[in-house]
Every structure is written in C-alpha cells, then in structure tokens.
Amino acid sequence: MTRAAIGAPSKDDGAVPAGVTVFDDDYPAVANLDPALVTALRKAASDALEDGVTFYVNSGWRSPAYQSELLRDAVAKYGSEEEAARWVATPETSQHVRGAAVDIGHSEAKTWLAEHGAEYGLCQIYRNEPWHYELRPDGWTGMYPDPTHDPRMQR
C-alpha cells in the first residue's frame, strides 16, 4: 500500500519536494509522465534555460491514491465536491493520473510557457490554473474557465 492510501503521499505516489525539474527522472512524478510530454517539456526547458528560466515540477504524474487524497483535501478546503471540482479532478478523470499533465512552478517558468509553450505543443488548459500544462501538438486555441467545463472531467 502506498503512503497516500494511509494519509501521507510518498515519492512513489508522485509527491515531489521543492527543486525537482523536468530533467529529474529519479522522481516518478517526472519519470511516469507520457514520453511525448516529457520530450516537449525538456525541449522547452532547455530553450528556457537560455533565457535564465528553470522549469520546476510542482506536480506531474500522480498515483490514484494520491489524487484521491488531493480531492478529499479540496472538498474539505472548499466545502463541497462541486467547488473542489474546479481545482482537483477525480482519479478516474485526472490527466495527472494518466501522466498527461504537469504543474510547472515558479512564476518565471509559467510566464515563459504562456508566451512560448504553444511552439512546443505545451498548452495551458484551464484559465484558473496557469501552472497546469498538457501536450496538445495540434495546438490549443482556447482555455476552459476551469476543469468543470472540460468534457474529459465529466463522470
């Protein structure tokens, strides 16, 4: 049983400490991402380094148990499943559990990706989550206001 199943997410569940980058394969949060997403992230991150910007991974792949814990925490924080759904998906619908999404940290990296990410197929999907990126190699011309508007999130 993973630690997320008993309350404390572990490295094996996809938890990451501060300072993990898109190049850190020692962390399942990075290593378990879709290979095409990792390739695009690393190309973008290499180019961003030329501008002095580092892509930190605040979250990437997550185990279903870790995703469930995040959802429980969001329900407690926001007071309802409906409000929590604006921020955290179920394990069944989460792109993080699929390895298809990454949350990028620090503001410089988010700003850089907002400006250049589409050139690499990296697109911000939700207007309320400027840190959440997915690979959309065919381009992404819009954003959902939040995950509750994303048809993939419907149960």
Rank of each mutant, 00 (worst) to 15 (best):
F55W: 03
E81Q: 13
Y66N: 09
E108R: 13
A89H: 08
L49F: 04
G79L: 06
G79W: 09
H106T: 13
T93S: 12
R72A: 15
W87R: 10
S80L: 11
K77R: 12
Q95S: 11
R98P: 01
V97K: 13
Y56R: 05
S59A: 15
T111N: 07
V75I: 15
A85F: 02
S68Y: 00
A48I: 04
S94C: 11
R98I: 01
V97P: 09
L70T: 05
E83M: 12
A76F: 03
S59N: 07
T111K: 08
D103G: 10
Y78V: 06
K77S: 01
S107V: 14
E92R: 13
H96T: 10
K110E: 15
Y56P: 01
T90A: 13
L70Q: 13
E50W: 01
H96W: 07
E82T: 12
D73A: 14
S63T: 12
N58M: 11
R98N: 08
S107Y: 03
S59D: 06
E83H: 10
L71V: 10
V57C: 02
T90K: 15
P64C: 02
T93G: 04
H106S: 13
T93Y: 00
G99I: 10
Y78R: 02
W87T: 08
I104A: 01
S63K: 03
A85I: 03
I104K: 00
A84L: 07
S94P: 11
T111W: 00
L71H: 07
E82D: 14
Q95P: 03
L71M: 12
R86E: 11
G52D: 06
A100G: 05
E82Q: 13
D103P: 08
D51Y: 05
V102L: 05
Y56F: 12
K110H: 04
E108A: 15
V57W: 01
P91N: 08
T54S: 06
E92A: 15
P91R: 08
P91S: 06
D73Y: 00
E50T: 10
S94H: 10
L70A: 13
V57S: 03
R86I: 03
W61P: 05
V75K: 06
F55L: 13
Y56S: 01
D51N: 12
V75H: 03
L71N: 04
S80F: 09
R86F: 03
A89F: 02
W87G: 05
I104V: 15
V88Y: 00
R86C: 12
A109G: 04
A65C: 06
Y56L: 10
G60Q: 06
Q95F: 07
A101C: 04
V53F: 05
I104W: 01
S68K: 12
S59E: 14
L71G: 02
S80D: 04
R86W: 03
A84V: 10
H106M: 06
V97R: 13
G79A: 06
Q95L: 14
A85D: 09
V57A: 05
A76H: 06
R98A: 15
E69M: 14
S94E: 08
G52Y: 08
T111I: 11
E69P: 00
T54M: 11
